[in-house]
Nucleic acid binder design. Structure first.
Length: 826
DNA sequence: AGCACGCCGACT
DNA sequence: GTCGGCGTGCTC
């Protein structure tokens, strides 16, 4: 009989440009299928968990395929739709399939091998002839037969351990092996069950009398077992051991005795970490008139259009509309994906939705543990549809979950730049990818925001997307009063007190007197000011990046924001020797300090990257603020998101200028969004909130637009400028960054590449230009921007870029130049 | 990504 | 003379 040899094209989780073909061992022929993970050796030694993309029987001609080492899954963990989605992602964002795989799979499903040292069974040499370090290793191998490279480091206390291992291999003393292990550990718990012999009354009676006399503790345990095992939520009368031991001291020993007597059976079972929702399920709230109108309009437009933009001002009650739409989708038996920026994924929102959707809702984001993420993934793949999550609330990575029949995707805070992944490829925008994902399911997408992105606004107003607006706040809450504080005039009159205008200080005082809370927004991150020599202007800079170092007061160190380099500030200027070194600029930390001088009795807290690093610190600050334990909250963008505080009388924006002057075509859009969003934090039940914008440019159009909450004026102006200068949404951007150690080589490479690109795209190539920070970690950077006209084929443009880059890569003289492509950069 | 092969500098 | 630095190319 002829044997059918099968081959599998697999995606390895690495930045390699294609799939690789492996031979399937005969015994796996019946069980392999696309979407399962397999262990393969890729390269000389390393083993990886790769994913089978397709199976065929065409033997590769140019090489001998390696065998698949092992099979990791019994059923596919990647669905066919996901493969389609992945293909689109790698094509659109110009990255490798392996990049997508790495981003898509939760860490727990990715495995790669680790080198392990084991004793060579045939070794017959004399241990006393070994060097000290070598002897230590051999000795350690006697007690634990397998050692990792890390363990060898610990044993020898040596950091460079490679040569020692190599020496031992040469002497035939040890062998090196690659070991893989699944990272995901199912959570197991110990359960107890009453043995079947004790189910009849006679036996029970006997046991009772026996225990009553001799073992009261055991009787107590047994009684509790009986009660708990008869709850209707237990299957087969199994009870968690922890439930018994929890508030019954010394019950452990009693359980052991009962098990020995054969009264109780002890066994372990997988329980999972996701827990079950145990609160009360509430009905969703009825919509008010405005919400109802919007909701109806969205439904209507979904009949024609795949995407609808919901523009609803802060506290207009967008979430209630989302909930209605989710209910509708669930009623059709379809799934919903609800995307939020990471930072907005607070417990408050999760609880609110759980109260309505209970166990049907799953949560998925990066702060979730690895094991939990695997469990959510696996729950999506459950054969029994009733066990699957029908709603997933998640951050951008949630678009990678294995949905079965998605009906609706909601992208809340649609304008947020955190939907875009920057650093490792795929540099995807989850909002745009979500629209594609929805398309693959023939599902609908709802984009929601109080300050939509210019792109979405354009798509909505030009008819590509549906569009609906709620311009009133929920419950008759008034829009805040926005006032400008003229810093130019204040400083001319010498009235500025550090960074504060008299107007802002007065208003803060007033608000505090009225027992209202205050939010002060300062765009500069949590870092403290820079240092500058007052004599010669010298500013301390990083040794390996072209940026000035920022001073961290709490740790008294100068730090580089880009590479982490830190150094002690010196007392005198190395350039001129002067000791007159002063702080320059200001961040939230300094503002917090100054406010505590102006308002010594106020409780002031800071919310920025530095104060929210801990696991619960973000939540704690929010809670403290809600419980009015904080009078003034000083913060960065963070304060603009997520929460509706109901006692904020005043919001102060310290400097609109620093945002407006940012050298980026999105500076105005971002400033508008930030200012409008932070303004939305004010306002109380029966009193209009106040917002003060400090600025040197009182007549700046964006400042005017914020004052009058004039969305139309803002978008009109932005669109005009974007059109005039060929920026999105009229043109699509693709940014290419070149990096090299040698600046001359980099320049040559950048000039060559831009010339090549210009032959294809002509004047729509910008650069090469040095970015704001021209050197990071001793790597010099140059940026090129390609503008692709909206009506041009993006596919064709990308194909051309790929061709040019391939030609570029073939040039020997540019081999050392790293190329990073970012499609739709933000 | 990781690993080997290969060609130039500071050491026994 | 060798050990080892990291630049370059390949992985089914």
């Amino acid at each position: 009989m002829e044997r059918n040899t099968l081959f599998a094209d697999v995606i390895v989780p690495l930045a390699v440009p294609k799939t690789y073909t492996y031979r399937i061992p005969q015994e796996y022929n019946e069980i392999v299928q696309p979407g399962i993970r397999v262990v393969v050796q890729f390269g000389k030694k390393k083993l990886y968990a790769a994913v089978i993309k397709n199976i065929h029987s065409e033997a590769p001609k140019a090489y001998e395929a390696k065998y698949i080492d092992a099979i990791l899954d019994e059923f596919p963990v990647i669905t066919p739709t996901q493969f389609q989605f992945w293909e689109w992602l790698s094509s659109y964002y110009m990255c490798h399939p392996g990049d997508v795989l790495s981003a898509a799979l939760p860490g727990g499903l990715k495995i790669s091998s680790e080198s392990k040292i084991i004793k060579n069974p045939h070794y017959e040499g004399d241990l006393s002839e070994l060097k000290d370090n070598e002897f230590l290793i051999m000795e350690a191998l006697e007690t634990s037969p397998v050692l990792s490279v890390q363990e060898v480091m610990q044993i020898t206390g040596n950091k460079v351990v490679h040569s020692i291992i190599q020496a031992l291999i040469k002497k035939n003393a040890v062998i090196l092996e690659e070991e893989v292990r699944e990272k995901f550990k199912p959570k197991m718990e110990t359960f107890l069950r009453i043995s079947s012999t004790y189910h009849d009354d006679k036996q029970l009676q006997e046991l009772f009398t026996q225990l009553e006399k001799k073992a009261p503790k055991q009787l107590e345990v047994f009684m509790k077992m009986i009660v708990l095992s008869r709850r209707n939520d237990t299957v087969t009368g199994a009870v968690k051991k922890s439930e018994i031991t929890k508030d019954l001291e010394g019950s452990d020993a009693a359980i052991t005795s009962l098990a020995k007597k054969g009264v109780l059976e002890v066994f372990s079972m997988e329980t999972g970490r996701l827990g079950a929702f145990s609160g009360v399920i509430n009905e969703s709230k009825d919509l008010n008139e405005k919400q109802q109108q919007s909701y109806g309009s969205i439904q209507d437009q979904f009949a024609q259009k795949d995407v609808v933009l919901l523009h609803g001002v802060t506290s207009s009650g967008k979430t209630e509309i989302y909930i209605k739409l989710i209910e509708d989708t669930l009623a059709e038996g379809k799934q919903v994906l609800y995307l939020l920026p990471e930072i907005a994924l607070t417990t408050q929102i999760i609880t609110r939705l759980q109260k309505i959707f209970g166990d049907r809702i799953g949560v998925y984001h990066s702060k979730y543990g690895e094991n939990e993420r695997v469990e959510v993934w696996m729950r999506m793949l459950e054969k029994d549809a009733s066990k699957r999550f029908s709603v997933v609330l998640g951050a951008r990575s949630a678009i990678f979950l294995p949905f079965e029949n998605l009906g609706l995707i909601i992208v809340d805070e649609e304008h947020e730049s955190s939907f875009k992944q920057f650093d490792p490829a795929p540099r995807y925008n989850a909002r745009d990818a979500a629209i594609m994902l929805a398309h693959l399911f023939k599902a609908k997408t709802l984009l929601g925001s109080a300050t939509p992105s210019v792109e979405s606004w354009f798509n909505a107003t030009s008819g590509k997307y549906g569009f609906t607006e709620i311009l009133e706040r929920f419950g008759g809450l008034e829009m805040p009063e926005v006032v400008v504080a003229d810093m130019k005039e204040a400083s001319r009159k010498k009235l500025m007190q550090s960074h504060f205008t008299p107007l802002l200080l007065d208003e803060i005082k007033l608000a505090l007197e009225n027992k209202e809370q205050v939010i002060i927004f300062q765009n500069r991150r949590g870092y403290a000011p820079q240092l500058q020599c007052q004599m010669c202007g010298w500013v301390p800079e990083c040794v390996s990046c072209d940026v000035s170092l920022t001073y961290h007061r709490a740790i008294h160190l100068l730090k580089c924001h880009y590479c982490g380099f830190s150094t002690k500030p010196s007392g005198s200027c190395p350039a001129c020797g002067s000791t007159d070194i002063k702080m320059k600029g200001f961040g939230t930390e300094k503002i917090e300090d100054e406010l505590s001088v102006f308002f010594p009795s106020a409780k002031i807290k800071r919310m920025d990257l530095d104060t929210t690093r801990g696991k619960h610190s973000y939540k704690n600050i929010i809670n403290d603020f809600e419980e009015k334990k904080i009078d003034i909250l000083v913060g960065t963008q963070m304060v603009t998101k997520g929460l509706d505080f109901d006692n904020v009388g005043l919001v102060g924006i310290l400097s609109a200028d620093s945002m407006l002057q940012f050298p980026d075509f999105r500076a105005h859009e971002r400033s508008f969004q930030l200012m409008v969003q932070v303004s939305g934090r004010t306002g109380r039940k029966n009193k209009r909130g106040k917002v003060i914008i400090q600025t040197y440019q009182v007549t700046h159009p964006v400042v005017r637009q914020v004052i009058h909450t004039d969305y139309n004026a803002h978008y009109l102006q932005e669109l005009n400028e974007r059109q005039e200068f060929n920026y999105p949404p009229y043109f699509k951007l693709i940014e290419i960054t070149l990096q090299a150690k040698d600046p001359d080589q980099l320049n040559a490479a950048a000039n060559f590449l831009s010339a090549q690109l210009r032959t294809v795209f002509g004047k729509n190539i910008l650069g090469p230009e040095s970015p704001l920070i021209p050197r990071i970690r001793n790597n010099y950077l140059k940026k090129l921007l390609i503008k692709v006209q909206r009506d041009q084929s993006h596919n064709a443009a990308r194909k051309r870029i790929t061709d040019v880059l391939e030609f570029f890569g073939s040039k020997q003289e540019y081999k050392a130049v790293r190329v990073v492509v970012d499609v739709d950069p933000m």
